[in-house]
Design a protein around this nucleic acid. Sequence first.
RNA 1: GGCGACGUAGCCAAGUGGUUAAGGCAGGGGUCUGCAAAACCCCCACCGUCGGUUCGAGUCCGACCGUCGCCUCCA
Length: 480
Amino acid sequence: MSLEIYNSLARQKEPFEPVEPGRVHMYVCGPTVYNDAHLGHGKTYINFDIIFRYLRYLGFKVRYVQNITDVGHILDTGEDRILLGAAREQMHPMELVETYTRRYFRDMDRLNILRPDISPRATGHIPEMLEWIANLIKTGHAYEANGSVYFDVGSYAEYGKLSGRRLEQAQSGTRVQIAEEKRRPEDFALWKKAEPEHIMRWNSPWGEGFPGWHIECTVMSVKYLGLPFDIHGGGVENKFPHHECEIAQAEAVTGNSFVKYWVHNGMLMIRGEEMHKSLGNFITLEEAFERWDPMVIRFFVLQSHYRGPLDMSEEALDGAARGLQRLRSTLRAVRRRIQSAPPGESPAELTTLLESGREAFEASMNDDFNTPNAIAALFELSRGINAWLDQGQGITQEALEAVDSLLERLMGEVLGLLPEGLEDEMEPGLGRELIELLIQARSALREQRAFEAADAIRDQLAELGVQLQDSPEGTTWTMA
RNA sequence: GGCGACGUAGCCAAGUGGUUAAGGCAGGGGUCUGCAAAACCCCCACCGUCGGUUCGAGUCCGACCGUCGCCUCCA
């Protein structure tokens, strides 16, 4: 069975066939860097990180481009997020943008999201945008008006094909602020004339100004990925107008189809509502990391399908933490035994178990990146492995290594849940030696059946976050 | 008003029309253990409501109720 992807343009799952065999070119709309990244960014970029990782796992050579939007875009108040942020923090706009770009990558790194191959910045591509806009004017799809340039949506018959909107049904501007210089309300800005107080400004054939929001993605994606390219991703909230406009700009001027597969992920909700500062439920990733391990957040996100909305609550996160712990404990148990296990071949029944686990995992991932099902397969695999370890037969070095390598691939390489091994594997050092010293002392007490003293040590270590586990082979410990 | 998504156990969440509706958390009962913990075994849903199509529907169609997103340069 091979990979199928839900294509928003076709509104159905389609077999995945890249434009160029063996290679995949994908683009995902990146953040506007005027503030700290929040949980919603976390979900989105985890969702696309999985697509990136799984395509690589399947053997494709992938080029992943994700832009950094560092040009301010106008709010309906006429203000600009980046200029507002710069004023707030007493920084030059480019200083603000640089600060939050770095913080964005820092947060993404903690979630073990692989960095895109190219992170182009809008401000670094102004000449290319000017060129593209000029082409649109030349081909009759855009017009200049009062120092700004607008795309003429009437000139592109297929406008609306992604979002399912038709121009006739567009509301005649009840809420859309209509710039009087536009020919029709749905026309969108490619270039905006800069008012005198606007700091971020560039020269153009139409005077000083700054680019419209949609043009950067079209220009940068085509520049680095060619035309057409395979996958364009982003949050559903960007389907309209952003992605619709990208298609119009790209296809009107080139006559080519722009993107083969449009992929949209669902929103993150907090107790049933979209995250909003005004609702008081806005949580930055930095804040979330104080409460939950980044891998717990990642795991939680992966336990739902990328296309659906995900409702986040403390209870749900805590539940995810326990589940992840269980998966990790299997791997831990396996790794702990590798050194001391006898050499010898892997028993056939284990091989069968691993093989069917891998097949179930891949079948789920092939079905439009169904990570919840893939994780279910991992839990079943984990249960099988634990049972195999419990029964004690055929636990050879080779067998344990086979388990380790499969889990490392599926849980680590594909799902990204094992950043650098297991973080509770404390480095050798004084702390570790002290813990082991205490365990030795406690074992001696247990041999003397001084259980009260032995239990006291166990309880106090537990309070410090060190969980002891007694077994016939001795006592092991983990950091809770 | 227009476009679209979704409503599955206490919580989270999968589910190509067809034998017993995944998986995780929580909960209950066991095995193991000096006791715990971990692990393993067992138990725990008739799928928002009402109709319809079908031999057969959580899965298709319609209506209704509810939630959410977009139509405002939010991931």
